[in-house]
Design a protein around this nucleic acid. Structure first.
Length: 418
RNA sequence: GGAGAGUUGUCCGAGUGGUCGAUGGAGGCGGUCUUGAAAACCGUUGUGCCGCAAGGCACCGGGGGUUCGAAUCCCUCACUCUCCGCCA
């Protein structure tokens, strides 16, 4: 959520933001402003009533301890008690509506984010490597994997349903190798601390990173226990320090490998074949808690950290900067890394690296102290995939396929597959 | 899963209806003393909200209730610990 002071002081700035993001109409800003004003005056009124009640009650206490009769005062207090109750009821209504709308206001965009109306307006900021040349027509990974009997989509469906799959032999081993390569790279060379935590989390966690309450349909929920399967390790990682004041130097950099579970609601018909869009996949996630002064530099570094995985695997990719309309609501700036998939004959998103400024930190109440004794401030949170393992496997398969329908092992994976 | 005990400020730990945001200790910070340090002593040390400010309000695990008034009483939920059971 954005700093509520902007609702009070600069509703027009928010209006411009919504326009830039193409989200006009998502929030009724006039209504939001009205509610906010009414809220504030109610809080004032209610606080005043409480003040009167409190002082009268103190009087009553004094009188009673002296054995005096306080019936008169007790009658007076009743008026204030009624006021308080009335204000509280009305305030509860307003707060609910206010919070709902407040949560719907997207994050401010960084100045470097280009205006745009769709993904067609996302500029490519750099490319690395080149599309590999094949003397034959490269197969998409799903055909290649099925032919080699290392990807089994039919049995995945038998076990769990559509968009599930089974890895056998080389595919299973190679994905494990890919994950190990990524974790080693980020922990040994990029300075991230490896974390391992729950794949199932409570609602507070889902709210903290913004999955709830707006996008509940996207996730698997275990109603009976009030828990949800994580759609990304961002959830346990970012919530690791929820409701805390961080001590020690920033940035804090952590990484975690996890399975991710997504309903892919609304994606019917898209990428229905293969490993690109599935209900369960593995991913190595990178998360940083940064000083607000340097958070956008940290985004550049985080993106480079993710890119390096593809460089190690010698896979051609490009980095695009998401335009105003394509940047997710909680992000201030996002780079997507898109890997080249020769079998699919297109680029596929394999990582999304974002700086959320204080938007998530405010929701999750993650703060730090610049110096001992000083007021706590909100940190800036960042995250990025480093990388999506299933899509990386698919990219390796497609890029390293040979004329006889086999898959060569990338140099960087050999030591993990011996 | 069963039984019991807990949940208070950075930490430990008092408080069982009234001037308690909360006694006391530890730690932190500032100071006195000292050649320096230790000790001793003095002071200070939570977060959020409303307000231009003065100031006020809220918070003693979460939510609800009783009461003029709740950290204190009642209900409910969550979590932690101990014992038993089960178990990779």
């Amino acid at each position: 959520m954005i700093d509520p002071k902007f609702i009070k002081e600069d509703i027009e700035g928010i209006r411009k933001l919504l326009e830039k993001r193409g989200m006009t109409g998502v929030v009724d800003l006039d209504r939001l402003k009205t509610i906010d004003d009414e809220r504030r005056s109610l809080i004032r009124k209610s606080d005043e009533a409480r003040e009167k009640r409190n002082s009268l009650s103190r009087e009553i206490g004094k009188m009673k301890s002296k054995g005096e009769n306080a019936d008169d005062l007790m009658k007076q207090v009743q008026v204030h008690a009624d006021d308080i109750k009335q204000c509280a009821d009305r305030l509860a209504e307003l707060d609910a509506e206010f919070t709902d709308m407040h949560l719907s206001v997207p994050n401010f965009l960084d100045g470097s984010v280009p205006a745009g109306t769709s993904e067609a307006d996302n500029p490519v900021v750099r490319t690395w490597g080149e599309k590999p040349a094949f003397a034959f027509t490269p197969k998409p990974h799903y055909d290649l994997g099925t032919d080699l009997d290392i990807l089994d989509f039919e049995r995945g469906v038998k076990l769990a349903g559509t968009r599930f799959y089974v890895y056998k032999g080389l595919a299973a081993r190679m994905e494990r190798a890919i994950i190990n390569l990524m974790l080693d790279l980020h922990t040994k060379e990029h300075g991230y601390t490896e974390v391992f935590g729950p794949f199932i989390v409570n609602d507070d966690s889902m709210i903290g990173t913004g999955q709830f309450p707006k996008f509940k349909d996207e996730y698997y929920r275990i109603e009976r226990d009030g828990l949800s399967l994580i759609p990304t390790a961002e959830v346990p990682l970012t919530n690791l320090y929820r409701d805390e004041i961080l001590e020690g130097p920033l940035p804090i950099k952590i990484t975690m490998q996890s399975a991710c579970f997504r309903r892919e609601a609304g994606a019917a018909g898209k990428d229905t074949r293969g490993l690109i869009r599935v209900h369960q996949f593995q991913k190595v996630e990178l998360v940083k808690f940064a000083d607000p002064a340097t958070s956008f530099d940290e985004l550049e570094k985080l993106t480079r950290d993710a890119e390096e995985v593809l460089q190690k695997l010698n896979l051609h990719y490009r980095v695009v900067l998401l335009c105003s309309a394509d940047t997710s609501a909680s992000s201030a700036k996002t780079y997507d890394i898109e890997v080249w998939m020769p079998g699919l004959d297109r680029y596929v998103e394999i990582s999304s690296c974002s700086c959320f400024t204080d938007y998530q930190a405010r929701r999750a109440r993650i703060r730090f102290r610049r110096e001992a004794g000083q007021k706590p401030e909100l940190v800036h949170t960042l995250n990025g995939s480093g990388l999506a393992a299933g899509r990386t496997l698919a990219a390796v398969m497609e890029n390293y396929q040979t004329a006889d329908g086999e898959i060569a092992i990338p140099e960087a994976l050999k030591r993990y597959m011996e």
